[in-house]
């Protein structure tokens, strides 16, 4: 009896301890998020303040960011990025699913060699080749356009099939076999049976490829060059941190950060379940 009591007491202490740790960690995890949101509403400009909590709050940073076009075309760039993100994530998803399905379900002579080559290709630092990519786009005649960006972001997507392949590997093949017996073609099996079962991995692929255009500034700056109208938000935000602008624009930078994080974070958190299923089905089995 006494022993049981001490055990439950132990358990209680352990629980409290766990909660304390969790709360401390949560504070650390949320601090940057909290700070950037707070900064985006700060009335005083400048990137540093000698106090933690702003003295005044305002909505102006958001209003200015979205309406002023004197220096930065944020609203336009936001639209550009959204367009590029949507298009490139559709194409990427199609590429990734095609390749991973083939690699998982079909057997052909070049399969292993192709998988090895893909793994090797993924290991080169991508931006090394950006000048060559620029000239290839120029050869096709589409530099400085949003199409060019879409092609760059989704062109190599076929290489990112490992996780999706791992996911397909875990799907049972019994259904496929049954369908073949009914006379279905492989294409029908792919579109009618496998894809509907692959919601988690589709969500995962869509999410990861949707993200790229929002965060890339290396390729975007090489490809867009002097075409200011076709910039993306990442380029714009990066520009705001330059010496001439940082003091006037830091709070607007924070507002911009919040604005691009909201859709992505919302999408991510609502799709979390699928994301986890997709990645843990795929990543661990390579």
């Amino acid at each position: 009896m006494k022993k049981q009591k001490s055990m439950s007491k132990n358990k209680k202490i352990k629980n409290i301890l766990s909660y304390v740790i969790l709360i401390i960690l949560s504070i650390i995890w949320l601090l940057p998020v909290f700070w950037v949101i707070m900064t985006s509403f700060r009335a005083e400009t400048g990137s540093y303040t000698p106090y933690f909590f702003p003295k005044g709050f305002t909505l102006n940073n958001y209003l200015k960011l979205l309406t002023e076009t004197h220096q930065f075309y944020f609203a336009k760039w936001f639209g550009n990025t959204l367009f590029v993100a949507v298009c490139s994530c559709i194409i990427s998803t199609f590429f990734v699913l095609s390749v991973s399905y083939v690699m998982s379900r079909m057997r052909f002579k070049l399969r292993k060699p192709l998988m090895n080559v893909a793994m090797i290709l993924g290991m080169f630092p991508a931006f090394m080749s950006m000048i060559a990519v620029y000239y290839i786009l120029k050869g096709i005649g589409i530099t400085q356009s949003l199409i060019a960006l879409i092609m760059v972001y989704s062109g190599g997507a076929g290489l990112m099939f490992f996780i999706a392949k791992g996911f397909f590997d875990t799907l049972s093949r019994a259904l496929d076999e049954a369908a073949y017996l009914d006379g279905a073609t492989k294409f029908q099996v792919f579109t009618k049976i496998t894809l509907p079962l692959s919601k988690p991995i589709i969500v995962y692929t869509v999410l990861t490829s949707f993200l790229t255009p929002w965060v890339d500034f290396v390729f975007a700056s090489v490809i867009m060059g002097d075409n200011y109208n076709n910039y993306t938000v990442a380029l714009g935000l990066f520009k705001m941190l330059e010496r001439e602008f940082i003091n006037d624009y830091y709070t607007q930078f924070a507002a911009g950060c919040v604005l691009i994080s909201i859709p992505i974070a919302a999408l991510f958190i609502s799709m979390q379940k699928y994301y986890v299923e997709g990645i843990s089905g795929g990543a661990v089995k390579g």
């Binding site: 005083e44 400048g46 540093y48 003091n247």
Partner: peptide, 26 residues
């Protein structure tokens, strides 16, 4: 550097500093 000296002047915590015309307005 740039951002810090502006913040310091704003609080009246700085006597003198080196900088260029780009900071004149602030």
């Amino acid at each position: 550097d740039g951002a810090l000296l502006l913040a310091a002047f704003k609080d009246g915590k700085l006597g003198a500093t080196f900088s260029g015309t780009w900071d004149a307005k602030a």
